[in-house]
């Protein structure tokens, strides 16, 4: 009894965290899947999904059921264990970063002083999953998609890290909560506009979305690394992509948009999450917006942009930040 008494609060906390993580991952995929198709439709002067439910709000649920019912096809020449492992490897790590994101002052799984490192470390596993999935499908399109994904992710991780480091230098901590708290008068988007811009571009590239969606370029590679995947395996990749979008947008919110700060609401320690989610979904809207605006870049353009513009600019920005922090 005593044992139960001692571990019960912590146990409840872990269970609540896990449930909330699952709710965020699946709910976000539903909301973003619907919003993406609806926004894409309206940008193209068409209404988007309209049939299932009022203005098609139930479309994604139907799609999910359909994907669950579909057969999971394994190509004959594929490397079966790795082929089955890749979607799980892509999907499983997205839960960990959600634990350290401060949704509001008190709504946070765990406040660890290396929160940023946890997010970056577990985000990098996704690349491995894409690579394994692309290789094990034994299909040239998948392999090309995986290759591109790796080159792109490795290249764009550098400016992303450096632009985040500029903020870390100003706040002197890796803890996401303290970084969010450090921008109570001015958001860092005003202090660090260059870092913010670089982060936004790198974020689009890291989540493999248009205009940097070369790993899954439909017109060239059919569907890139998940060409051969069907049914649940495919939907796990999609869930992971949307969850990754949520995570990178949350990081942008915490680092540049003041976390959960905003107009005070009652019980602000908890209700700040409303502002946090508003900011996150505004950024997600921006991601969808640019996806349906810009054409896909060519691969050499993508690499040139990273190595010739993003990295030098982020380094100069870091240098200026360091000097300013030292002077002030």
């Amino acid at each position: 009894m005593e044992i139960l008494h001692s571990i019960l609060p912590e146990l409840i906390r872990i269970i609540v965290c896990a449930v909330c993580g699952a709710v965020i991952v699946f709910g976000n995929a539903l909301v973003m899947g619907y919003a993406e198709r609806k926004l894409a439709g309206h940008i193209m002067l068409r209404p988007g999904p309209m049939e299932v439910g009022f203005h098609g709000v139930l479309q994604l649920i139907i799609d999910g059921l359909k994907l669950m019912g579909k057969q999971l096809v394994v190509p004959q020449q594929a490397n079966k264990p790795l082929y089955m492992l890749a979607p799980i490897l892509s999907f499983a790590p997205v839960f960990v970063p959600l634990l350290v994101i401060p949704f509001s002052d008190k709504l946070q799984g765990f406040d660890i002083n290396i929160g940023l490192l946890i997010i970056l470390a577990f985000a990098s596993i996704n690349v491995l999953a894409i690579l394994v999935g692309g290789w094990s499908s034994n299909n040239k399109y998948s392999l090309f998609g995986a290759f591109r994904s790796v080159a792109q992710n490795v290249a764009y991780e550098i400016p992303m890290l450096i632009s985040l480091l500029a903020v870390v230098f100003m706040t002197n901590t890796f803890s996401l909560k303290e970084i969010a708290a450090a921008q109570s008068p001015v958001w860092f988007v005003i202090v660090q506009p260059v870092a913010f811009l670089i982060y936004i571009v790198a974020m689009v590239a890291e989540t493999n979305r248009a205009p940097f969606d070369l790993p899954e370029a439909e017109s060239e590679l059919t569907a890139g690394f998940h060409t051969e995947y069907s049914g649940m395996a495919f939907s796990l990749f999609m869930l992971a992509e949307y969850a990754n979008m949520f995570i990178v947008c949350s990081v942008a919110t915490v680092f540049f948009l003041g976390g959960s700060s905003g107009i005070p609401l009652p019980y602000f320690e908890y209700s700040g999450a409303v502002w946090f989610l508003v900011k996150v979904y505004a950024l997600m809207f921006f991601l969808v917006w640019i996806r349906w605006t810009y054409p896909r870049t060519r691969f050499d353009q993508l690499m040139n942009f990273c190595w010739k513009y993003m990295i030098p600019f982020s380094l100069v920005n870091l240098l200026i930040t360091v000097v300013m922090v030292k002077l002030i």
């Binding site: 490192l117 970056l120 470390a121 577990f122 990098s124 596993i125 690349v127 491995l128 991780e157």
Partner: peptide, 8 residues
């Protein structure tokens, strides 16, 4: 760092 550098 191990996860970030080695695995990533």
């Amino acid at each position: 760092m191990q996860v970030l550098i080695y695995v990533g």
